[in-house]
Nucleic acid binder design. Structure first.
Lengths: 231, 231
DNA sequence: TTGCAATCGGAAGGTGAATTCCGGTTTCAC
DNA sequence: GTGAAACCGGAATTCACCTTCCGATTGCAA
């Protein structure tokens, strides 16, 4: 009989694996001390999930993912305690990709142009990934993804301040306005690929950028709440 | 035994009621030749549904609606063939309200100011009604609501053209940009009331309006598809 | 008042997914 | 090579809703 893997769910087992990983590498490794077949399957599941999530968003089905990965649903659940955790892993990955690109933008010469290009790049990413756009538009974040987002916000803030100091972005914009903009944009990219092809996120984005450009016209309403971030 | 109301669902009965209504009033009447108790219940159901839909959006439950209306679920289904039809009725109603206000805006002196005020008013409506904002942000329309929307779009187009002729709105905006804007805005109002209170739709809206004001700056990307409308 | 068709309520049925369970396999340390 | 811990698959279970069904009730015309 098993001794340590007993419990209401498989979660403890997963945690154990993560602990073992931590002893091997310092970064949260993708596939720690797993048996060869397990590691292989885990990768296959992630790949299938990425595709299903990009295609159908949160409504993708666990069984489809399992089938696409060539495994049974049980295997999916051995690696991720539930659907939310699986998707959280994917979302975190996406956020890290966004953060990387944002960091790269910070090095460019013209911060305003860099900001605009970053927004365009990110909008394209959303347009190609229904899951990402759903998450950005309306899904509350959980788990690791929340932390990943907070890092992303910090980077955006840096870029924003740079553009403001350069006199190209209106001074009264706040960090909070950026997630807000991205939220609106995501709804548009999501709708555009779905039921309303006449929606045009490229135009929408340019219109918003136009509104953010310095010098600002009419005064913006004051904030009601601030993002609460550590620090 | 029944002779005319037989069918796979109660839909035929509803249609029949509507036909009967048509002979009494020219407009689609709310409660035609129904028995007194039926009419009373129908109103109660609509009221309860309106509240549940505004509060929880499409995820509201039929049983909750029935309970709030003080009737059984069976009664709800006698008046509306299914959930979608019930919500369609509510959405249509909302769209008509929007259209009325738009028509009123057409009579105002300063068309640009009227447009801005209309957008602000409509955003407030969305912020108070989760269901409405869901529909505008991402739900494909069905049934009557689709027709109601098309009427609304026509009116918006008139207002837009007026503002453009007055030289206050950039000339390269198209009708399609307005539903797009509203879609983005709805996502923001929806998120703001839910998980992300730091989102501020008032600021977002003003930013967008700023971008729409004449004279436009950078050229907008060309449309990819047009709204296909009759005429 | 009476007859009965229309209406009512809410239990039961159906559906679509997520999640659990467990007998059979596979990998790997020894 | 061998034993057992770790893994595997996918049928069975669970859960949360929407929708249907039908015996009991009620409004209304005669």
């Amino acid at each position: 009989m098993h001794l340590v893997t007993q419990g209401p769910t498989d979660l403890p087992l997963t945690l154990l694996n993560q602990l073992m990983a931590a002893t091997t590498k310092t970064k949260p490794a993708k596939a720690p001390g797993l048996r060869a077949d397990a590691r292989r399957n885990r990768e296959a599941v992630l790949k299938a999930a990425r595709e299903a999530f990009a295609e159908q968003g949160f409504d993708c089905q666990m069984e489809d993912i399992a089938r696409a990965a060539g495994v049974g649903v049980g295997t999916v659940y051995r690696h991720f305690p539930n659907k939310e955790a699986l998707l959280d892993a994917l979302v975190t990955d996406r956020f890290e990709k966004l953060a990387e690109e944002t960091a790269r933008s910070l090095d460019k010469d013209d911060p305003w142009e860099a900001f605009c290009e970053l927004m365009r790049w990110s909008a394209r990413l959303q347009a190609e990934d229904r899951g990402l756009s759903e998450v950005l538009a309306s899904r509350p974040l959980v788990g690791e993804a929340a932390a990943a987002k907070s890092g992303l916000v910090d980077l955006s803030e840096k870029l924003m301040r740079k553009a403001q100091r350069a006199g190209k972005m209106r001074k009264d914009l706040m960090v909070e306005d950026i997630p807000t903009m991205i939220c609106g944009l995501s709804a548009v990219t999501g709708a555009a690929d779905g039921s309303m092809p006449a929606m045009n996120w490229e135009r929408f984005l340019e219109l918003m950028l136009e509104g953010m450009r310095a010098p600002g016209g009419a005064k913006l309403p004051p904030p009601r709440a601030r993002l609460n971030r550590p620090g």
